[in-house]
Amino acid sequence: MSCSPDGGESWNRIRNPIPSECNVRALTVYPNEPHRLIAGTDVGIYRSDDNGATWQDLEAPVGDLQVWSVTVDPEDSNVIFAGTRPDAFRSRDGGKTWDQLALGVTLPCPVGIPRTTNMIVDPRDHRTVWAGIEVDGIYKSLDGGDNWIHLPDLGPDPFHGDIHGMTLRMSREGTSVHATTPFGISTSTDEGESWELHEFPKFHEADMRSYCRGMAIKPDNPQIMFVGNGDSIPGVTGVIQRTTDGGATWQPADLPVEPNSVVYWFGVHPDVQDVVVGASLYGYVYVSEDGGNSWQKLQKEFGEIRSVALTPN
């Protein structure tokens, strides 16, 4: 893992205590503590209290389950959820102790063991927790994670339930749930009971579909959303799809350099509302400082990027 203290001009490699050879698949910033982060890895869960400069091992008993997602309760920052392979863990005391949660995911799935790629604590009611599974659709808990409901399928193909990114969009019109899959972005306006799919254009005539991964909502304007798109996984090209009307229409961002793989993940933060960071799976980092109207590619390139997080200085 690497950290830049100056907007991407220079980078510091984190080597201790996070092993340099492990995969970091999940990063999240505390909702009410903008300089505190959680990292989920193949070997455990780590926390930084200083914008990523130093880290401590929370000693979560995840073993070899791999951490694919992490989130912090916006109402009680002592409550942390970590999505693993399969199911999830929860801490109620800031990471000192952990409970393993049984979501009830289907075993095996088309890719073997399902991965909990997204977990969201609902800001409307923190007892409601959402989980997106790769590959088993979306689950929801109404009691803080003790019990889980498997929501209706997003489509007829098993890979409609191959959940990659997930967000809750709250606007004057109400709340909508969005999930990305290999087919596109699916939207529910009835708390996940039914879904409408939007497919993006294929990159090549021979492509089976237009693959989607991470997504993000501009913190101060829910009409603006971003979806990471590509020809496949990992793919050889990609694009950042952007909507300014809540998902009614989408346009590809004008990037200065064509991505070398699918655009995999995004970072946004309410304290720097116009800054958006997007990353391709194979290491290109793009930054917009005007809410996605224009983009620059950072000079630094990485071998592989699975997650990015943005914090204010």
Rank of each mutant, 00 (worst) to 15 (best):
L27T: 06
G40Y: 05
D87S: 12
A60K: 02
V62S: 01
T71M: 07
E75Y: 10
D73A: 04
G94R: 02
D57V: 07
L27M: 09
F81M: 05
S69P: 02
N23H: 15
P61T: 09
A82R: 08
E59Y: 07
L27V: 13
V43F: 08
R47S: 10
D76M: 11
G44T: 09
A88Y: 03
R92Q: 08
R13F: 11
T54H: 14
R47M: 13
R36A: 14
P19S: 14
N32Y: 07
S69A: 15
R90P: 00
L37W: 01
N51F: 07
N78R: 15
D49V: 06
P61Y: 07
A60W: 03
D49G: 05
N16Y: 10
V62D: 01
A26Y: 03
V70M: 05
V79C: 05
I45S: 00
Q66M: 10
T84R: 01
R13H: 12
S77F: 03
I18C: 11
V79W: 02
N32L: 13
R25C: 03
V43H: 02
A60Y: 06
V43E: 10
R13Y: 09
W68E: 03
V43C: 10
G94A: 06
L58A: 10
L58C: 12
A60H: 03
E75H: 14
Y46R: 04
L37K: 01
G40W: 07
S91V: 08
C22M: 06
T28L: 09
P34N: 14
S20L: 14
F89R: 03
D42V: 04
S91H: 06
S69E: 01
L58S: 08
P31W: 03
A26C: 08
T41Q: 06
T41R: 00
D93H: 09
D49Y: 08
Y46K: 02
V70E: 01
R47W: 00
N16H: 13
I38M: 04
D42S: 15
R90I: 10
D50A: 07
T71Y: 02
G83V: 04
N51P: 00
T54Y: 08
V43M: 04
S48L: 08
V62P: 00
A39H: 04
P34M: 07
S20N: 12
V79N: 05
N78A: 14
